[in-house]
């Protein structure tokens, strides 16, 4: 399990800092009079940083025709408000316009909205389509060509989403990766997707613990009454892919160039060693039944090299598949 802070902020880059200035200036002008703390909260910076930004602005502006910066071309604030009451009020501003989005910025939000449209109840919303059109008009050029396909929710996803929204307990007929069918009663917390795979985070009443269930492993889901409230889990979505701790550790070897083929088996902490042009990775599996599946992923490019009984299990698994196909 990752020990990284999932809400940690990435380091601000120069582009982010310029975007902050471009967004901040029209905000401060529009607000007319706003406290330093409120403006800082709106832009997710510290009050101290906000004061630095305002102080910078008062020293810049547009140069005059002869290239000199004259007072009438500079930003100017009410200094009494600023220094005595910690309040920002501009008296003069050479720039008060809200900036357009770049082609790629608009594309990132637009493609994100296409993914949001796949959520139950969102696909039919007319405001989503209007918002997409508005984003395109707010871009400085043609929106970059990025798109996400939007598949309307199926009946199962509708049922689960309705249970999340209305706080209903669900009875699941669930198949595990061990191939076992289990009946589980769960209280839903959140419906999530990673790429095209949908997950229900829920409180499992039979395990008395938070658990994550893949929707495509549910043979059925039926609402059976009111759910109870449980603490929401804040795990990073990436953690959904990690095997249960205490499983089996296998070593695989592939050409380094083929490593992306098993990218989704590799966690951020999983060590990969390089020997010449070969990559050797140690991959945790939740149980022995998954050995054949991993070996199939490697088919043609690499193999499980360790432990010996995992190699034997992979070969036996594939022989059984070949025998069943006869």
């Amino acid at each position: 399990m990752s020990d990284r802070d999932p809400v940690r902020k990435p380091a601000a880059r120069a582009g982010d800092k310029l975007a902050l200035l471009l967004g901040l200036v029209p905000y401060l002008i529009d607000e007319v009079r706003v406290s330093v703390t409120e403006a800082a909260a709106q832009f997710d910076v510290s009050p101290e940083h906000m004061r630095t930004l305002v102080a910078y602005l008062t020293g810049t502006g547009e140069p005059g025709p002869d290239g000199l910066y004259l007072p009438q071309g500079l930003f100017d604030i009410d200094w009494d408000d600023f220094e005595q009451r910690d309040v920002i009020r501009f008296r003069r501003a050479p720039l008060d316009e809200k900036p357009r989005l770049s082609s790629r910025e608009a594309a990132a939000l637009l493609a994100g909205l296409q993914a949001v449209a796949a959520l139950p109840g969102f696909g039919e919303r007319a405001d989503l389509g209007r918002l997409m059109a508005k984003l395109a008009r707010g871009a400085s050029g043609e929106v970059s060509p990025v798109s996400v396909n939007t598949r309307t929710a199926d009946a199962l996803r509708e049922t689960v989403a309705a249970a999340v929204a209305a706080g209903r307990r669900l009875r699941l007929d669930y198949v595990t990766t061990r191939g076992e069918r289990e009946e589980r009663d769960v209280d839903p917390i959140r419906l999530e997707s990673v790429d095209d795979v949908w997950y229900l985070r829920a409180w499992c009443l039979s395990r008395e613990a938070g658990r994550t269930f893949r929707l495509d492993r549910m043979a059925s889901a039926v609402a059976i009454g009111a759910a109870q409230q449980h603490e929401s889990s804040v795990d990073d979505a990436g953690a959904l892919f990690r095997g249960d701790a205490g499983g089996l550790l296998v070593t695989v070897e592939v050409p380094a160039s083929a490593l992306p083929v098993i990218a989704d088996y590799l966690g951020p902490e999983d060590a990969v060693e390089y020997v010449g042009d070969r990559a050797i990775a140690r991959i945790p599996l939740a149980h022995r039944g998954l050995v054949g599946r991993l070996a199939t992923r490697l088919a043609g490019v690499g193999a499980i090299t360790h432990p010996e009984d995992a190699r034997a299990a992979a070969a036996q698994w594939a022989r059984a598949a070949l025998a069943a196909a006869e």
Binding site: P10, R13, G15, D16, A19, L20, L22, G23, L24, P26, Y27, D30, E31, Q42, F43, K98, P99, L101, S102, R104, E105, A106, A107, A108, L109, A111, G112, V146
Partner: peptide, 16 residues
Amino acid sequence: LTEQSRRALTKLRAFG
């Protein structure tokens, strides 16, 4: 895409 979205939202914070 994360970086571009973040910048877009920073600009849109201008709407208050």
